[in-house]
């Protein structure tokens, strides 16, 4: 997967790039509108991350340009500014998702994956990991071809863990991901433990290997030993 990061904060762009590298996402970075338009004109990307406040103008200009050129790349706006108007304008100009800074890199990664899955959708939309198969559309999980009973939240958690495989995920990042819009209302991250425990139990009962590792003091990690 290849994505373009349009972000004038170089340090942030670099850390996104290095985090994604291990999860098979190749990143190119542009810091200005000019650089971005050059790159978009030459290469094809699976997804574009777009900051709105750029030194040579507004990120919305890039959205308009993409529309004009008939490009179909998925666009995720990553902006510090979030008002109802910018959100609506972004979606109207063809953005697919909107993520307000600050965010967890893991969250950004699964959003990109979900977006690319939607864009490349050809009849089936499933993710496989060894004996495990998740049907994103049907919201079902099967182990070795046998369906298991999981909740919507557990599928969400599973997608998040697998999407960030080999990455240590902090409890707060998982909690915020699972809470969605309510993330700002989180008081306590302890409920993550309960969800992880339930998921682990259901998977192992179905004969799935234990891929969810506890990283002491930090969080959890999906890992294939």
């Amino acid at each position: 997967m290849k994505i373009l990061i349009i972000e004038d904060e170089q340090v942030l762009a670099e850390s996104i790039k290095s985090y994604f590298k291990a999860n098979d996402v190749l990143c190119e970075i542009a810091h200005t509108i000019e650089q971005s338009l050059d790159k978009i004109g030459i290469y094809e990307y699976d997804c574009i991350l777009l900051d709105l406040m750029l030194p040579d103008g507004n990120g919305f200009d890039i959205l308009s340009e993409l529309k004009k050129q008939g490009k179909t790349e998925g666009v995720i706006i990553i902006s510090a500014k979030e008002t109802l108007e910018t959100r609506i304008e972004g979606f109207n100009l063809g953005a697919d998702d909107y993520l307000t800074k600050p965010f967890h890199l893991s969250e950004l990664l699964v959003r990109i994956q979900a977006l690319v899955r939607r864009k490349n959708f050809k009849g089936n939309n499933s993710i496989e990991f060894n004996e495990l198969e998740i049907d994103v559309l049907a919201k079902s999980v099967s182990v070795k071809g046998k369906k298991i009973d999981v909740t919507k939240k557990e599928i969400d958690l599973l997608l998040y863990l697998i999407g960030n495989k080999n990455r240590v995920l902090s409890k707060s990042a998982i909690a915020e991901h699972l809470s969605g819009d309510m993330a700002d209302m989180l008081d306590n991250h302890d409920f993550v433990y309960a969800h992880i425990k339930n998921l682990k139990k259901k998977l192992s009962e179905a004969g799935c290997d234990d891929y969810i590792k506890t990283v002491y003091g930090l969080g959890y990690k999906w890992q294939n030993d």
């Binding site: 904060e9 942030l12 996104i16 800074k101 600050p102 902090s170 990042a173």
Partner: peptide, 20 residues
């Protein structure tokens, strides 16, 4: 508050990286 968002994002991203 707006201006703080970007440094916060950098901070958050680096902690995420450090944990790896």
């Amino acid at each position: 508050a707006h201006e703080l968002q970007t440094p916060l994002a950098v901070f958050q991203a680096h902690i995420d990286m450090l944990m790896q």
